[in-house]
């Protein structure tokens, strides 16, 4: 069953056309990899899915986009759809770890308190579960109060993944999550992504065809803002 469907989806920022007439379907609870050279529109497409272009001056999205969230069909660009609500269900991890200032624990505690506001007793359980899911618990359980910036690059990226997972999204967008990491950290993240794909709908950007073939259930190739192959 498709979790993401788009028909003739286009994106322009000012006079520049970044995406042209993209029509595709991405399966639920699978990993779809968006492949293509730099500037081909992969990240732009990813950011269309959770309306991250909303605050970009001059950005215009046209065409049809529907997401299947909690069994309902959601139209992200319809007037009634709140982008904040949408982004709480469509999580995202960026190319480079984008930490909040503060400790490891704070990076998980603050978003979940602001978004879900769980009871105090449940909070610690959620933090532990998210860190275990991101395979980081054993490495940080004794130092949750340490600055998040003190973690290695790979650990920071897994923390960002844990931070996205603790909000219990249904779709997770991954924008080249291994691009800034060394070989070992990359393979740790890849293993983690593989373990997550049966529980979440994952859409990952990659410029590495070998990695895409290794991980993907479906590969979509972009070039010059258009779809080449899917």
């Amino acid at each position: 069953m498709s979790a993401i469907r788009c028909h003739q989806l286009s994106l322009a920022i000012g006079k520049r056309q970044l995406l042209s007439n993209i029509s595709l379907e991405l399966p639920g609870n699978k990993l779809s990899v968006l492949l293509g050279p730099s500037g081909s529109g992969k990240t732009s497409f990813l950011r269309v899915l959770n309306r991250l272009h909303d605050d970009t001056a001059g950005a215009r999205v046209s065409g049809e986009l529907t997401l299947s969230l909690s069994g309902q069909t959601i139209h992200p660009y319809h007037h009634g759809t709140d982008p904040v609500w949408l982004r709480r269900r469509v999580g995202m991890v960026f190319q480079h770890p984008n930490l909040l200032p503060g400790s490891i624990g704070h990076n998980l505690r603050l978003p979940v308190q602001l978004v879900k506001n769980p009871p105090r007793a449940e909070l610690a359980q959620r933090i532990e579960a998210a860190l275990r899911e991101a395979q980081l618990w054993d490495e940080v359980c004794m130092r949750l109060d340490a600055p998040a910036a003190s973690l290695s690059g790979g650990q920071q990226q897994r923390l960002c993944l844990a931070r996205a997972l603790i909000l219990q999204p249904e779709i997770l967008l991954l924008d080249e999550p291994t691009v800034s990491l060394d070989t070992q950290a990359s393979s740790d993240i890849e293993a983690l992504i593989t373990s997550l794909k049966c529980r979440y709908t994952l859409v990952m950007v990659s410029h590495n065809p070998v990695q895409a073939k290794r991980l993907a259930d479906k590969i979509i190739v972009f070039r010059d803002g258009s779809l080449v192959d899917s």
């Binding site: 959770n50 904040v84 999580g91 984008n98 603050l110």
Partner: peptide
């Protein structure tokens, strides 16, 4: 922090009051 806050589903008020000001 804007992109991180947006991606986490924080509203602009939450990002400013709970993340930016304390930092």
């Amino acid at each position: 922090l804007q992109a991180a806050g947006d991606a986490l589903g924080l509203s602009r008020v939450q990002l400013l009051l709970w993340v930016v000001l304390p930092a």
